[in-house]
Computed example of a mutant assay.
Amino acid sequence: MTSTDVPRTAETAEAGRRETAQRLLDSSAMLSYDPATEVDWETPLDKDFHGASPEWSTLYGTSYWAEMSPEQQKELTRQEAASVASTGIWFEMILQQMVLRDFYAKDPTDPAFQWALTEIADECRHSIMFARGAEKLGAPPYRPRRLAVELGRVFKATATGEAAYAAILVAEEVLDVMQRDWMRDERVVPFVRTINNIHVVEESRHMKFAREETKEQLEGAGPVRRRINALVIAIASYFIVSSMVNRDVYKNAGLDTARALREAKANEHHKSMMRSSCAGLMEFLGSCGLLTKPALVFYKRANLI
């Protein structure tokens, strides 16, 4: 290797990063949505529809689900969809702060800088869209547990590099697979399908950027740093996923909370859905050397692997 090889490699990587960011900017300019006008906010909620594909309910496949009336099943999926949306808002606020910190005082003419601001603008619209959607579903404002909120407060202020971008990727990819099912499902209330379609289209660009940033940030990372951040990402992933469905959804759907929690915890169908939805994500993290033994403990606890 000559002394000129390293600079050329660095220049090539930077050129590729700029090219990716420019493609994402071009794609965003061609296909983006305004939820304020794209979503039907005016039509009253039709309770003959589910809020999410029933197969994604935490109780689907349990004896409790079999005992529930169709109306109860639909109400539960509406409450669960609202809870997932509320968790999405929580993490999108974390995401925005991490991305802003990463690009603070950097070159504003860089396409990656401009893409970062575009992504943040997308997330602002998504959070408002999720909030309005949850309200229309007739749900209260669900929030993560206090421990998750406080850990998130620390994470958003300190996470950098691959720890930030891989955690962003986990949150986006887990939600993406669910929403791809929901947006195609005619049993789901139409305005929720529209919300899911908007989110899937725009988040596909965010996931591309998060994958590229994760790989770039890991270039040159030593084994100690890689192991530490692998664990940090896994812990963050556990709290993100375990916060998606708030325990109060069962009470608000008129169910016995204690029984619902027991059956949801033991629901192998839902665990299988989560694992299958994350197969590609786990493969990517493994290719980056981020599936260490300590990290796997948390991914297994979250039923992601």
Rank of each mutant, 00 (worst) to 15 (best):
A279G: 14
R23D: 05
L31P: 07
E19R: 13
R205Q: 00
A295G: 08
G152V: 02
E38T: 12
V201Q: 01
N246G: 00
G280W: 07
V200Y: 00
W41P: 11
A85Q: 08
L137E: 01
R184T: 06
W115L: 09
P111D: 12
T109M: 14
R226A: 06
R153I: 07
L255P: 07
R211F: 06
E283T: 14
S63V: 13
L137R: 00
Y299R: 15
T292G: 15
A21T: 06
M178A: 13
A258Q: 12
R184S: 09
F91W: 11
T2Q: 11
A295M: 04
T194H: 12
K156V: 14
F284L: 09
N252M: 01
P144R: 02
M1A: 13
N252H: 06
E92I: 07
R23T: 03
R226V: 05
S3R: 14
E219N: 10
V174C: 05
A295V: 06
E268W: 06
S69W: 03
D48A: 14
W65Y: 04
A264T: 09
R226Q: 07
G152Y: 04
S27G: 14
Q96D: 14
A139W: 00
S57G: 05
E71P: 00
A258I: 03
N196Y: 01
R78M: 00
R78P: 00
S276I: 11
P70M: 08
H199A: 03
G138M: 01
R8F: 09
A295C: 03
R259I: 04
G286S: 15
A112V: 06
R301W: 14
D48Y: 09
E42R: 15
S242R: 06
D107A: 05
F91N: 09
A230T: 05
Y250D: 00
A295N: 04
L59I: 07
G161K: 08
D40L: 06
A279R: 15
R153D: 11
V241L: 09
V177Q: 12
T77E: 02
S53P: 13
S127E: 15
T87S: 13
S237N: 04
V189W: 03
L147C: 04
R180D: 09
K136W: 00
Q72F: 00
P44T: 12
L59A: 10
V200N: 00
A52Y: 08
L31M: 13
A36F: 14
E173M: 10
R193E: 02
F130R: 03
M1E: 15
V170R: 11
L255C: 06
K156H: 08
Q22C: 03
I228N: 11
E75K: 06
G222H: 02
V201H: 02
S27A: 11
S277P: 09
M30D: 12
Y142E: 03
L255K: 02
T87C: 11
E38R: 15
S57E: 03
W41L: 12
I128H: 14
V241S: 03
E172N: 09
F284P: 14
E123C: 01
F130L: 09
I94G: 11
